[in-house]
Design a binder for these strands. Structure first.
Lengths: 200, 200
DNA sequence: CGTGTACTTGATCGTCTTCAAGAGCGGTGG
DNA sequence: CCACCGCTCTTGAAGACGATCAAGTACACG
C-alpha cells in the first residue's frame, strides 16, 4: 500500500509479515511498525482516506480483505465489533509509544532486546513460536531501519547479544537462550500490548 | 493521569498544555505526545482500561470531562460521532509515527524544527497563534525528553536555530522568523495531521 | 562460474552525552 | 529587606556511542 494512496479496503493479515514505513527525501527509511499474522491493519485509510505511510510485505502474505463499505455497515450494526476494531488501532498507538520510548531513551542494545521480546510475545499469542524460538523474515538492513540505526551497528549489537548467549539469530530464525537476561536488558513489560483478556 | 491507573472518564483539553510520558527504571523520561487545547485524550483508557503511560499537565488546564459510561451510550447512538472520536485516536497514531521517523532518521536539528512546525500548524487551527508566534510553556529539560536527547544538546540546537535566524525562542514564546527555511530543515509535510477537512 | 545481496569486521570520524561550573531569576524565610 | 535556595538556561571540555567508509566473506541465483 503506497504512501499517499487511497485504499478502499482494510485487511487482516492471515499469513506472512509486513511493515509500515516512511521514506525521507534523502532516501532514509524508517519502519514504524511490524505486522504479524493476526494483525488487522489499514484502518487508518478507513477513517482518514489518504495514507500517510506505506505498508510493505516482507514475505508473501495472505490477506483477508475488509471493504470499507462493509466496515461502515458493520459499524452501524455492531457497537461491540466497532469497539474491537477501534481497540486494535489503540493498541497500535500504544505500541508506537513504546517504540518512541525505545528510540529516545534506550541504548541500541536495549532497543534491540525490546523488539525481540515484543515480537516473541506477539507471535506467541498466535502460536507462531516454537518453545523459545520464532521465525522473523527480516534483514539486518530492515532491522536497522526499524531501530533507527545503521546496518553496521545492528550487526554489532547482534554480535554482543550473541556473545552474551542471550539470543541466537541465524538467518530468519531467532531463539531466546536466556529470557530473564533478555527481559532485563530490554526492561520489557508487555502491558502495553494488552494481550491479557479483559471484558470489552 | 498516572501510568497504570484506570480512569473512568476521558477528556477534551479546553485550555492549557499537557504531555504523555513514560518513565524508565533509571528515571529517564520520554514524552510521547504534546497535547494542546482542542485535543481529545484519554480514549486509550476508554477502550483498554489500564493506562500504559502518564498524562502530565504542563500548565494549569481546563478539561471537559466525558465519562466512559456516557461515551458508551454515545457509541450506541451515533455512528458518526463514534467515527470522529475514533479518528482522533488514528491521528494520534499518525503523529506517533511521524515522531518515530523524526527520532530514528532525522538529525536533532531537523527533529526540533519539525516539532516547532507541527505545533505551529496545530495551534493555528485552534487560533492560538499570533502571526508567526505562539506560546509553548515547556522547559528545555522537557523538550529534551520529547526529542530524546540531553538538555545540553537541546540548548545547543536551539542556539544554532537562533544563530541562523530561523526562530526566536524566548522563555515560552516562539516566533518563526523564516518559515521556508524552517520547513526545509524539518522536511515538514503536515499531511499526517489530517487538518484539511474532508467528508467523514 | 559470475553477479548481487546480505552479513561481517576494522578504522576513523562526528554527533551527542556526561561532567562541571557559572549566570539569571523567582520564591521563601529569617 | 535581603540572603539563600532551587530551577532553568548557558557554556566549556572530555569522552562514549554510533555513523561512515572500506574491504572481505558467505551464499543464493542465473
Amino acid at each position: 500500500v503506497a504512501d499517499g494512496s487511497r485504499p478502499t479496503s482494510s485487511a487482516l493479515l492471515v499469513e506472512g509479515f509486513a511493515v509500515r514505513s516512511k521514506v525521507l527525501a534523502d532516501g532514509a527509511r524508517q519502519i514504524t511498525a511490524i505486522h504479524v499474522p493476526g494483525d488487522f491493519f489499514g484502518l487508518h485509510s478507513f477513517l482518514l482516506k489518504q495514507m500517510d505511510h506505506s505498508v510493505v510485505a516482507l514475505t508473501g502474505c495472505r490477506l483477508a480483505l475488509a471493504d470499507h463499505e462493509a466496515l461502515r455497515r458493520l459499524m452501524s450494526v455492531s457497537t461491540h465489533l466497532t469497539r474491537l476494531l477501534w481497540m486494535t488501532t489503540i493498541i497500535d498507538a500504544a505500541t508506537h509509544r513504546e517504540w518512541l520510548v525505545a528510540m529516545g531513551r534506550r541504548s541500541s542494545l536495549s532497543h534491540m532486546a525490546h523488539l525481540v521480546c515484543e515480537l516473541f510475545v506477539r507471535l506467541q499469542v498466535v502460536r507462531l513460536t516454537d518453545g523459545l524460538s520464532y521465525r522473523l523474515p527480516i534483514t539486518q538492513r530492515q532491522l536497522a531501519d526499524t531501530l533507527g540505526v545503521s546496518p553496521v551497528h545492528v550487526n554489532r549489537v547482534l554480535q554482543s547479544l550473541r556473545a552474551e548467549k542471550v539470543i541466537s539469530w541465524v538467518s530468519t530464525s531467532i531463539t531466546i537462550l536466556n529470557w530473564n537476561r533478555l527481559v532485563e536488558i530490554a526492561e520489557f513489560d508487555p502491558a502495553y500490548l494488552s494481550l491479557r483478556s479483559e471484558a470489552r
